[in-house]
């Protein structure tokens, strides 16, 4: 199993360091991302999910400890080498442009193309694979601003697939989607993790859905950060500690959150 680990960390503390002081947002975190797994990162707003994602993706450094990608410190990667190991799907809007869906997906090949960005037959193959896997063939020639939010999310996932990296990280891919689209999107991620043997990590607020569809979850609570399978997390009652409020609790039998209206 050892060689199946793509990314791991020793015990890290995350937060922001300026010249004057260090603000630690969460500490005592250990994570391990393995091949073929769909992993959800959950926790309340402001608990440090984004900071953790930024730390894992090398955008910022951990305050203490190190993150290793393929057993090499992530801080030692160049931008281009890193781009061949992990791809991102972010929450930010795309700037206005005339990009078609196909061109957008093809931009995922940038880490491999020459100085002019010319696509080789291999590049085109990977782009078409990504489009087929995400089932967006019918959108390929449309402009990226002509499609719905749910479709755009799939296109961005296709772009990440085209980047052909062992690890894909998505920041809240299910926000702005209705329940059905949330479910189908996560199903797509689950299928991709199995079919392409990639590790897919995403942050989300849809804990119920994540419990049903994910192989593992990283739960951030005020006390600690735990990584385990949904079943184990249910058994040891971790979900009850996510929300620091009496009116919401986790029902272990039903496997979902219940609200108490008082």
């Amino acid at each position: 199993m050892e060689n199946e680990i793509i990314l791991h960390s020793d015990t890290i503390s995350i937060g922001y360091a300026s010249k004057k002081e260090k603000i630690i947002i969460a500490n005592d975190i250990t994570i391990q991302l393995q091949k073929s797994k769909l992993i959800a990162l959950v926790g309340v707003n402001g608990i440090g999910k984004s900071t953790l994602l930024k730390t894992i993706t090398g955008i910022q450094k951990p305050i203490e400890g190190n993150v290793y990608l393929n057993n090499k410190n992530i801080a030692d990667y160049t931008a281009k080498d890193l781009a061949q190991q992990m791809s991102l799907v972010l929450t930010e809007h795309l700037p206005p442009s005339n990009l078609t869906v196909f061109e957008l997906v093809a931009l995922g090949r940038q880490p491999y193309t020459n100085w002019l960005g010319t696509l080789t037959t291999e590049d085109l193959e990977k782009v078409n694979d990504a489009i087929r896997l995400t089932k967006i063939e019918h959108l390929a020639q449309k402009k990226h601003f002509e499609i719905s939010d749910g479709q755009l999310q799939k296109v961005l996932i296709a772009r990440a697939l085209a980047q052909d990296t062992p690890l894909i990280i998505l920041d809240e891919p299910t926000t702005h989607l209705d329940l059905l689209h949330k479910f189908t999107l996560l199903q797509l991620l689950q299928r991709l993790a199995k079919e392409t043997q990639k590790c897919i990590l995403f942050s989300t607020h849809d804990i119920d859905l994540a419990i049903q569809l994910c192989d593992e979850m990283i739960v951030m609570t005020p006390e600690k950060t735990v990584q385990a399978s949904p079943c184990e997390l249910i058994k040891n009652g971790t979900f009850n500690t996510i929300f620091d409020d009496k009116s919401i609790g986790f029902d272990q039998q039903k496997g979902k959150f219940i609200f108490e209206n008082r």
Binding site: L90, Q110, L116
Partner: peptide, 23 residues
Amino acid sequence: LFSIKSLDALLLGENYAKSVGLN
């Protein structure tokens, strides 16, 4: 001319551009 590839990456916005390996 040598910026063509970077300009294409920038169509995705700064953060995406960085994530596809743009310095």
